[in-house]
């Protein structure tokens, strides 16, 4: 392992949910490291604007819950770049509600985006990676997939992210000999559209600070190191891992 351990120069990386928050940040950072980034999300104007900013990026409008869209996304990436080296399953939704008020339809919808779409895209793109004998899949799980919260009630989200956690391990085990590594990052709370309500409210922020051993939420860019590590050859012997980036939340 010589040179830049975290080298991603020229690698083709598909990032879902790249229209805002963590996904947009990931796309910028990956591009900054020399990767060629395929941006996927429903809000086309946003990903197109972001693609303009980056040296070599492709925006593909995509609802990850649509099999047709995912097929188009994959094909567009292959047409443009020939192969996919890294898949970042980042698209996600949350619908906080106490279980008494949460409908089964809401629950299904969250599981559909966070878990089923992660499975489906991993299956589609991971199979191509396995045929090529190389690839890295990084799933964005959550601390909420590892522990219960209560204060921010959302059974659908917690269940879907817990599903992502063990999906990661199982796919890692199935593909370990095919050169495809599958890992997850479990973020604590980071500012994004999803957490606007939380960080916008002093009580919410105080709650995060209180429950986090490091006494604060995550900052922009503090997931980049974990992403670059898991996406690059720096982690060539790491697979099936769920890496918390949570200031110690899940160590308690």
């Amino acid at each position: 392992m010589e040179g830049n351990l975290f080298d991603l120069e020229g690698r083709v990386v598909v990032v879902t949910g790249a229209s805002s928050g963590l996904g947009a940040q990931f796309a910028r950072r990956l591009a900054g490291e020399g990767a060629r980034v395929v941006l996927a999300a429903r809000r086309r104007d946003r990903i197109e604007a972001l693609a303009e900013e980056l040296p070599d990026a492709l925006a593909v409008e995509c609802d990850v819950t649509s099999e047709d869209d995912c097929a188009r996304l994959t094909q567009a990436a292959l047409d443009r770049y020939g192969a996919i080296d890294v898949l970042v399953n980042n698209a996600g939704v949350s619908k906080p509600a106490r279980v008494e008020d949460e409908t089964v339809a809401d629950f299904r919808q969250v599981v559909e985006v966070n878990l089923v779409a992660t499975y489906s895209l991993s299956r589609r793109i991971g199979t191509l990676m396995a045929e090529r004998g190389q690839g890295s899949i990084v799933n964005i799980a959550s601390v909420v997939g590892m522990v219960g919260l209560g204060r921010m009630p959302q059974a659908s989200y917690a269940a879907s992210k817990a599903g992502v956690v063990n999906l990661t391990r199982e796919l890692a085990a199935q593909w370990a000999r095919s050169g495809v590594r599958v890992n997850a990052i479990a973020p604590g709370f980071f500012p994004s559209e999803m957490t606007e309500g939380l960080f916008g409210d002093p009580k919410g922020e105080a709650w995060v600070a209180k429950l986090t051993p490091m006494g604060r939420g995550g900052r922009d860019g503090e997931l980049d190191g974990a992403l670059l590590y898991l996406a690059s050859d720096a982690s060539s012997y790491v697979t099936g891992v769920v890496l918390p980036v949570d200031g110690g939340w899940t160590a308690v």
């Binding site: 051993p213 490091m214 190191g225 670059l228 890496l243 918390p244 980036v245 949570d246 110690g248 308690v252």
Partner: peptide, 9 residues
């Protein structure tokens, strides 16, 4: 510093 928010893992 690239793991600045990783603690207790």
């Amino acid at each position: 510093p690239d793991s600045a928010y990783v603690n207790g893992c």
